[in-house]
Design a protein around this nucleic acid. Sequence first.
DNA 1: ATAGGTCAAGCGAGG
DNA 2: CCTCGCTTGACCTAT
Length: 308
Amino acid sequence: MTQIIGYACINTHLKKVGITTNRGVRKVTLNRTGNQLISQLALQNSKDLHTIIKWNADNNIRMFRISSDLFPWGNKVDITQLPDYTEIRAVLESAGKLARECGQRLSAHPGPFNLLASPKERVIQDTIADLELHSQMFDMLGLECSPYNKINIHIGATYGDKETAIRTWIQNYHKLSDNCRSRLTIENDDKASMFSVRELYDMVHTKIGIPIVFDYHHHRFCSGGLSEQEALELAMSTWPIGIVPAVHYSESKALHENDSKIRPQAHSDYLSNMVNTYGHEIHIMLECKMKEDALLKYRQDFLEKKLL
DNA sequence: ATAGGTCAAGCGAGG
DNA sequence: CCTCGCTTGACCTAT
């Protein structure tokens, strides 16, 4: 069985030759230059996304996370009004088509500032704008309106009261567009005080049916009393029939390096262990600092060598 | 040309 | 109170 594994946002090999989807601009510069610069950066980022997707295809990589930085300040401006919008749209359409043709599963993981449970109205509005931007990008790429192409976020905060936080979260979830909601997934947190798979299942999934992305690494910090296998299988049970559940896998940097200053939550450069799928079919997003290089090494160490 | 300081956003943990 | 970590380091200025 070929294992589908993916990597996130950055291709270190291509980055060395200037290919990146993460060009941005700081506020002070933007105030000087205006939206023209945003447009140029977004166009260049989009072209490079196409290049990365092509590279993935050529290297038989069938899962990839799109950067949330593709449109700098995209959640603050109407991207359809950018001077290069038509060209950006065409480039993304072509990139998405390429991904579909080679069965490359694309997803996104909007930043930790996306907090639908916040009691602050401004935070909610910013979150909705950012999630809708991601969904808009996915629309332009021609990606499915399903968690196959997931837009994955955390609940991310409790505000001292989990019940209230979840109630708020669900209330705001319903403010999202159909397209955005249909792609949205939630992931278990990496702090003991936050949301485990068990809690996501009981408090959120049973209410609105949203799929849960199981993160192996986070589970070690917030197990909710479940074993790894139990949490994986509970998360898997939340996915619609016909869509292979996606999971996240990473290892602690602290395990690899003897430095007490490194926090256990930090991700390692490469992986030294094979993912235990417990015999299940899952698509695995590898989160390593060395990105596609870590994926290639993982494949060589654990998937190809195994055949010998 | 490169290094180092700084940078949009929220929250919680640790020092 | 400040820094780190998180999705993802990258921008920008001074040397």
